[in-house]
Simulated scan of single mutants.
Amino acid sequence: MDSLGSSWLPTQTLILQISLIFGLSSPSPDSQAVKYPSSSCTLKRTVGTSVQLTLTSPLHPNVREIEWNWKSEDDEKTRLLVSWKPQTPNPDWYELEEIYKHRLNLTEMAFLSIRNLTMEMSGLYTAKIKFNSGKSNEEEFRLCLYDPIPHPQIQILSSSNKSGWCNISLECEIPGNAGNLTVTWLSQGLPRHLKQRGILPNSRNLSLSLPISHINSHLTCVVSNPAEEKNATLHLEDICPWRGSLQSKWFWLGILLMVLMVSLGAGVWIWMRKKMQTRRGRWVHSPARGFRLESYSPGPSHRGIY
């Protein structure tokens, strides 16, 4: 770490760890109660998607019939859906409400396929497998449905820099009805001792203090429910651009120094060249006086011996 703000490092690092340990993951304040806990859900899907209920029991010749029924989560009413028999070419569908009739399909392996899911279609689906021996077996699927997650946005509530530290306050904004959602902040590019995760009752807001040497990284706000997740990312350099402007100042200062050095060197070279042109000389030898430097000026009337 550079010397800038180095005396503050232990205190500021502690502040960052506390913010991240206690401020990163929690249910949204607008969370709605779910009738069945997520752990009891066999399948988790988002409204508008599709799902296929796959049987694990093999369809050996001893199977006489497979009957699917559905117990709605809303009214807890059990509906018979379809009956499949190996001897018949087509499944036998029971009478269904128009809203469900064209959304259900049975595959050749007697798997129940549901498309364009609505919130009302959550609940307990049961396949009753009947054998020629008179015995039967049941496979259950609890389908839990969730509203689609809107795309989150990271809002900058405040930002400042002081003594080499970038102080920021952010909010993970979720448009619309943000019920039953979890908000998690993730970081990338930060040192391990500055990167933690934790829980706080309101984790949409995050406050950090980062040293100047660590803002070349980014933070990601992850919004999720048990069925899907969406995220938004913000580069820290976009929040604290003063580091980039400082680098830009040093860059242009370096360019200016280079121009000055080149100009100075050119001036010295021109001065030396003129000096050599105004005073030239050569070594001559005579038996009486030995070697001597004979110099002269360019003018025709001046000539001297040094």
Rank of each mutant, 00 (worst) to 15 (best):
D2V: 08
S6K: 14
S7M: 12
L9G: 05
T11H: 15
Q17A: 14
I21Y: 13
F22V: 05
F22E: 03
P29E: 05
D30Q: 14
S31A: 13
A33L: 13
S38D: 15
L43C: 03
R45N: 01
T46Q: 04
T56Y: 05
S57Y: 08
P61G: 07
P61A: 11
P61L: 08
E67A: 12
W68F: 07
K71D: 03
S72A: 15
S72W: 04
D74E: 10
D74I: 10
T78F: 06
T88R: 09
R103T: 09
R103N: 09
R103D: 10
N105I: 02
N105D: 13
L112W: 02
L117A: 02
T118L: 12
G123E: 02
Y125L: 03
E140T: 11
L145G: 00
L145H: 01
Y146C: 01
I154H: 02
S159L: 05
K162P: 02
I168R: 01
E171Q: 07
P175S: 06
N177D: 09
A178F: 01
A178N: 03
L181Q: 02
H193W: 10
L200W: 06
N205V: 00
S207R: 12
I212C: 09
H218L: 03
T220W: 01
K230W: 02
L234K: 01
L236V: 09
P241H: 07
L246T: 14
Q247M: 11
L253C: 11
L256S: 12
L257S: 14
M261I: 13
V262W: 06
S263R: 09
W271I: 07
R273P: 01
K274D: 10
Q277S: 15
G281V: 03
H285V: 12
P287E: 14
P287G: 10
E294D: 08
S295A: 13
G299M: 04
S301A: 08
S301D: 08
R303H: 15
